[in-house]
Amino acid sequence: MSQAEQTHDRFRGLKVVEMTVNAGPVKLVEAASFNLAAGELVALLGPNGAGKTSLLRGVIGLAPRESGHARIDGQDTADMQPLKRARQLAYLPQNRPLAWPNPVRDVVALGRFSHGAALGRLRGTDLQAVQSALAACDLDTLARRSTSTLSGGELARVHCARAFAAEAPLLIADEPVAELDPYHQFRVMDLIRDFVDQGGGALVVLHDVVLARRYADRFLWMKDGRIVADGSPAETLSAERLAQIYGVRGDVDGERLELLGPL
């Protein structure tokens, strides 16, 4: 991982300023501003339709912005060539359809696309990165297996490994643990936490507040296209917040957190 650490050392953070993303006349994200530093795992929380995915796509430069900036180390992602951008940030979208039943190793190797790797001819740093990503996600024994034969939990690990193989300093993940059982939710979040502890940064959309509080350093709360709160779980998580954001009654008391039902 020495090369990865070097990359992470250079990462000085993501800075999003007054970013507005719209689709035609509809504002999906309005004037969003936040920072993300190396070594930080930030959870993006909010109800369905709050604009979380649009925020991620705007940050990456995949969704057209009406105004604002999203800069990594001073350069706007919207101005980066796709290859360069991919070396700065790895993106796990919400929908992760695999078109063909490729072997696990090949899917993970696609994380090296921006480094020029060609499937079936991996060598040097590409080969090392793929092998360490496979090992980190416990996929060594599955490397030759076809992805069409894997369970949901195994597939989630394959996608994580694909993102880690890029050795990009910033990970942006849209609901990486959706549809996973509790054990695999912990497994995937552990992987992301390890990535961050080694000096990376991660922006992760989560729906499970309990899980988010366990893993995240900071919460970004989103509602109706706006970031309404930004701070540590201790600062921003309260019964009032749960009511305001999700419209649910919650019992928040120190370490205890329970969702009791709709308002």
């Binding site: 796709p82 290859l83 360069k84 951008r85 979208p93 992760r96 695999l98 899917v107 696309f113």
Partner: peptide, 20 residues
């Protein structure tokens, strides 16, 4: 041809790994 491999991941993730 190499971009076709990347498209295995779907268009969104393919752009994410650096495909134009």
């Amino acid at each position: 041809r190499r971009g076709l491999s990347a498209l295995t991941l779907g268009e969104e993730a393919a752009s994410g790994v650096g495909l134009n």
